[in-house]
Structure formats: structure tokens, C-alpha cells
């Protein structure tokens, strides 16, 4: 059981800035995120796309914004729990207790939900039988590549993950790369490598094809792929690897008894508290009259929420508003002289 002042759910830009706003007020926080790295949508969806509306930063990419925020919160030495999803929230003596799918337990008077549009999960194949084979013959990610040796592997997708794994696994398995159109997304270098291996007969490429059927009982025996004209082809297959990017799922948050407006959590715009005392929602996931889904709005929201968090975490202390330019206490907390 880990005790802290605030549990932050979501390590996107707003979750990261929450650490800063809490930290300068002397509050301790932990961060939980389902992804394997901090940055949220900025890092997962548009690491290389420039953002032009961060105040005083004329232009920066999603990756740069994340790196700068991480730099800014360094003094607070906050612990990140990555690859973890919050499964359960319970009230406990005027506090909240949280359990993750990794069996970590946290307790704090405050929870800040900075969950964006939900947690990222692999986009799954839509065929009915796909569920049945998941984890046995169908995989959406690779943990140990040794499990994929000496097999007939069909890889679906046209992006970096599909191409990189096709290259890597072609060293020890028969690879068929299947994509819905002729063009692939990927670096010139990777594409050239793939084409080279295709010429050498080490990788088969099937375009423009999509998955139409899976044959097999316990294990997959073969798959049928089909093109737009209806032409189909059967391929002997042991394993399907599918790389169609990530989708965002709200997940268990929807069942916590919070007032929701469609997929968003309704909050009080004075302090961004939800209908549950001590649970706050900030950034893209919250909604209130006039809400704009901008990173800069999230920064404002978390600044206000952190004040209310302070009042709940330090009920016997009086909250004192301070500027970073003049407060000695804040400078100490930031490690500045």
C-alpha cells in the first residue's frame, strides 16, 4: 500500500503538469499510466507533429513538449507506475484507495483523472473468431521474439510496427506481410530492406488484401485474405500479428459513479472536482460549459484543481497563494537558490 497526497491517472501533458502544480505546493503525487512511457497522446499519436499553441512556445513537437515537461518536474522526483491500468477505486476513511491491474494499491485524499480519451489499447481484429485465438495464435504486440521462431507468420498493417517486425522475424520464420493498399508507411531504409528480402524470397508481400477468414480449431491452420474485387487467397498460417495502431478506451473509469456527459466527466469549473469529493478530472477527459480540448486549457484546469487538492491533503494548514518568482518556499522545492 502506497500512501500519497494525490494519485494522478494519466501521464499526458496535463498529468505531467499536475505534478508541477502539486509539487510547488508541497504535495506528493504518484502517476499511473497504461502506456510504457509518459507523454500520452503527444507521444503516442503525434510525437513528430508540431504544436503551435503552447503559450510562449511558438513551435514544438509532441515529443519536445513531453521532454520539456519531464524536465520541469524533475525536482519533484515523482514515481511513475507505467504499463499499469487503474482497475478499482474505493472510498476509505475520507480518502480514496486505488488498485491497478499490477496489484499495486495506492491511498490518497485526492485523485486527479488526466486520462485524455481513455487508456490506449491495441486495435483488435474485427473477425468474430479473432477473440478465440488471441494470445495463442493472434498477437497485437510481441513480448518475447523467441516465441515466434520457425513459424508461418502473417503480419497485418502498413506502418512501422508491421514493417519492423516483418524484418526482424524474417530471420527465423516465414513471413507474409499483408496490407490493404500498395503503399506502406515507413522509413525509406526499412522499405528498401523489405523489398530486398521480398526479392530474395524471404518475405512475401500481399497487397491490396485484407483478412477475410480464419480457419482452425484450437490453433490457426490457415487464413483467407481478400482484395477489393473479391479475389481471395488461402495462406498456411500458424500466427497472425496485427498492427493497426492503438485505440483509446475509457475503461473502468466509466463505472466509478462519476457524472458523465457522453465520454467525458462533468466537473465544477471552479476547481475541476467531479461529483465525488476529492476526485478531479482535467484535460481532454473533463467537460464543463465552454470546454476546449486544448493542452493549455488542461494546464489551467490542473492549476486550479491542485489548490483544492491542497485543502483536502492539508486540512489544518491555510493555503497561501504564491508566485514562483518570489516565493522562497517554492524555490526551495524546485531546488533553486
Amino acid at each position: 500500500m502506497i500512501k500519497t497526497d494525490v494519485i494522478i491517472i494519466g501521464a499526458g501533458p496535463v498529468g505531467l503538469f499536475a505534478i508541477h502544480q502539486l509539487g510547488i505546493k508541497g504535495l506528493k503525487a504518484v502517476v499511473i499510466d497504461n502506456l510504457d512511457k509518459p507523454g500520452g497522446q503527444c507521444i503516442e499519436l503525434y510525437p513528430d507533429k508540431p504544436i503551435y499553441d503552447i503559450p510562449a512556445v511558438p513551435e514544438c513537437t509532441g515529443k519536445e513538449l513531453t521532454d520539456r515537461l519531464l524536465e520541469q518536474i524533475k525536482p519533484f522526483k515523482t514515481k511513475f507506475y507505467l504499463n499499469e491500468r487503474v482497475e478499482e477505486v474505493k472510498t476509505k476513511d475520507n480518502s480514496w484507495s486505488i488498485k491497478t491491474n499490477n496489484n499495486n494499491e495506492f491511498i490518497a485524499p485526492n485523485i486527479i483523472i488526466a486520462g485524455g480519451v481513455g487508456s490506449f489499447e491495441p486495435r483488435k481484429l474485427s473477425l468474430k473468431d479473432a477473440d478465440k485465438f488471441e494470445g495463442k495464435s493472434i498477437f497485437y504486440s510481441i513480448k518475447n521474439k523467441d516465441d515466434f521462431k520457425n513459424k508461418n507468420i502473417c503480419i497485418f498493417g502498413g506502418g512501422d510496427s508491421a514493417l519492423d517486425w516483418a524484418l526482424e522475424l524474417s530471420k527465423s520464420s516465414k513471413i507474409t506481410l499483408i496490407h490493404r493498399r500498395k503503399d506502406f508507411r515507413g522509413t525509406q531504409h526499412t522499405l528498401a530492406e523489405i523489398r530486398k528480402l521480398e526479392k530474395q524470397g524471404k518475405i512475401k508481400i500481399k497487397t491490396p488484401f485484407q483478412l477475410d477468414n480464419i480457419e482452425g480449431n484450437e490453433k490457426i491452420q490457415s487464413i483467407t485474405i481478400k482484395d477489393e474485387s473479391g479475389k481471395s487467397e488461402k495462406i498456411k498460417t500458424d500466427i497472425i500479428l496485427s498492427f493497426f495502431g492503438l485505440v483509446m478506451k475509457l475503461g473502468p473509469i466509466a463505472e466509478w459513479g462519476l457524472n458523465m456527459d457522453k465520454k467525458n466527466i462533468s466537473v465544477n469549473p471552479n476547481n475541476f472536482e467531479t461529483n465525488k469529493k476529492g476526485i478531479f478530472a482535467v484535460g481532454d477527459i473533463c467537460t464543463y460549459p465552454g470546454k476546449l480540448k486544448l493542452i493549455l486549457s488542461g494546464f489551467h484546469e490542473v492549476a486550479l484543481a491542485s489548490v483544492e487538492c491542497f485543502k483536502r491533503a492539508r486540512p489544518n494548514e491555510k493555503y497561501k497563494f504564491e508566485f514562483t518568482t518570489s516565493s522562497k518556499t517554492i524555490k526551495d522545492r524546485l531546488g533553486k537558490k
Binding site: R123, S126, G157, G158, G159, H179, R181, R185, E228
Partner: peptide
């Protein structure tokens, strides 16, 4: 846009 459609559910022409 075309790159993103690769990720969509059952893309067509």
C-alpha cells in the same frame, strides 16, 4: 489521412 485510414475499422476504397 490515408495513413490513418489504414488503422480504421474495415477500410474500403
Amino acid at each position: 489521412e490515408v495513413d490513418m485510414i489504414d488503422m480504421a475499422f474495415e477500410p474500403k476504397k
